[in-house]
Amino acid sequence: MTESTTRYLRPRRGTNALQKTLVGGLARLGVSVRGAHQLVVRGRNSGQWHSTPVFPLRHAGSRYLVAPRGHTQWVRNLRVAGEGTLRVGRGSRTFSATELADEEKPAILRAYLTRWPETRSLFPGVHRDSTEASLRESAAGLPVFRITLTS
């Protein structure tokens, strides 16, 4: 694998804990901050359930999960499991996931950056007004999954 396909942007110290505690905790209580959901996915090695806050994107009639930090643990787990659950409060929806090919990602990345412009620091050298070529170049390091709700 090349560096771009194994990209992982480690959160600054305390950022991950704050996000999981605050945003994830609120989603567990039923308060979705800027569209946040709790992603629950089975661990690829342990088989135990893991959760993390995510921001599902609706675009052109489909739903997507974008991993702006790259190949994180939840991405690796979802690749193996192929399915997960999105929760907000007591509500939960299970889904199947299909990872997109790099050439399918630019439109999704642009929509994600338009919906959550505050995340642009997580995207290497691109923003919502970037050219298709720039978005395509960054796509290899940014996992994107199309999710299909099953319940």
Rank of each mutant, 00 (worst) to 15 (best):
L109C: 06
Y112H: 10
A107M: 09
S51M: 04
L100H: 02
T98A: 15
V31W: 14
L86M: 10
S51Q: 11
A60R: 12
E118Q: 13
R58T: 12
R34D: 14
P56E: 05
R10E: 14
Y8C: 11
A101S: 13
R12V: 13
G89D: 10
N77G: 01
H71S: 12
G30K: 01
S4I: 15
D102T: 13
E103H: 15
T2K: 14
L39S: 05
Q38P: 04
A67I: 02
V23Q: 00
V126M: 02
D102E: 13
T150C: 09
R76K: 12
A133C: 04
L29N: 01
F145M: 11
L29S: 08
R115K: 15
L18R: 07
R42V: 10
N45G: 09
A81M: 01
Y64A: 03
G61K: 00
E99L: 07
R93A: 14
V66M: 03
L113K: 00
G141E: 06
S96C: 13
W49Y: 10
G24P: 00
R44G: 01
F145A: 07
L135P: 04
S4H: 13
H59S: 07
H127V: 07
V80R: 08
M1C: 14
V33T: 07
S4N: 15
L29R: 06
E99M: 06
R120Y: 09
M1V: 15
G25E: 03
P11N: 04
V23C: 04
S151F: 10
P11D: 04
G89Q: 10
H50P: 00
E103S: 14
A133P: 07
R76N: 12
R34C: 10
L57M: 05
L39E: 01
A67T: 00
G43S: 03
R12A: 12
V66S: 00
H71W: 13
T131L: 06
Q48G: 09
L135R: 08
E103P: 11
G70L: 02
L109R: 03
T148A: 14
R58G: 10
G25R: 01
N45R: 14
V33Y: 02
